[in-house]
């Protein structure tokens, strides 16, 4: 096992696809479930988090016992939040016993600190979730459906629909108006007389009124 210089607070080096875990997790059910699926490296003197997914991202694990014991866990969360270089994901054991404390943890973690919080029922569930988080970290960002840039629909189609919202303009007049006044801005600045070249007098006045009257 390689070791990074002790000291704790500095950035932790995590090879791709590995997890650096705090020494105290050695032998736990959580660690055993993960071994074989991801490579775990135990390290002593990790001050801030329980698991490091990368040098920038870590997991803070709050056990059922931590929750019942009181607010002690909060100090750890704040230290990660204030570290500046770390994104902290908080995993909390939400069981029948600790359920009642969950709303308070959630408010503190998500709403006050702005960190991500994920509840699990036990260490087995946590191991599956952490493996999933590692996979999320290692794959390309574009594989995440919520980070993929969606292609825009044809602006022409939207423009026709926008112009159709003007009172008196339906799907026939909209393209005709856009052919004469090819941008919304130009259409908005058209005079009644100019509009009359495309549509009738009544509709021309309606369009002009729509753009110019104060709402």
């Amino acid at each position: 096992m390689e070791r990074t210089p002790p000291g704790g607070a500095g950035p932790v080096h995590v090879p791709l696809g590995h997890i650096v875990a705090r020494e105290r997790w050695r032998g736990s059910q959580l660690a055993q479930e993960m071994q074989g699926k991801v490579k775990l490296m135990f390290e002593e003197g990790l001050a801030l988090a329980d698991f490091y997914l990368s040098s920038r991202s870590c997991i803070l694990y709050i056990t059922e016992a931590d929750l019942v014991a009181g607010h002690g866990y909060r100090k750890r969360l704040v230290r990660v939040r204030n570290s500046g270089h770390l994104q902290g994901i908080v995993i909390v054991e939400k069981t029948q016993i600790s359920e009642q404390y969950f709303p308070a943890v959630q408010k503190f973690t998500v709403l006050d600190l702005g960190m991500a919080l994920l509840p699990v029922a036990n260490q087995l569930e946590a191991s599956c979730l952490i493996i999933q988080l590692v996979q999320e970290q290692t794959r390309e960002p574009s594989r995440n459906p919520f980070l993929r840039k969606k292609r825009c629909a044809l602006p022409e189609l939207s423009l026709v629909q926008t112009v159709q919202q003007i009172p008196g303009v339906g799907k026939v007049k909209a393209p005709l108006l856009l052919q004469r006044f090819p941008t919304i801005q130009q259409l908005s600045n058209a005079s009644v007389r100019e509009l009359e070249e495309v549509v009738g007098h009544a509709v021309a006045r309606q369009i002009h009124a729509f753009f110019t009257r104060p709402h």
Partner: peptide
């Protein structure tokens, strides 16, 4: 818990979308 559930949660976290858990409509 399903794999689908975990992968949705991690994708949301990865994209910076906030997730909150509620026990019912009042919460």
């Amino acid at each position: 818990r399903t794999k689908c559930y975990d992968s949705l949660l991690t994708s949301l976290v990865g994209a910076g979308i906030r997730i909150l858990f509620s026990s019912g409509q009042e919460e």
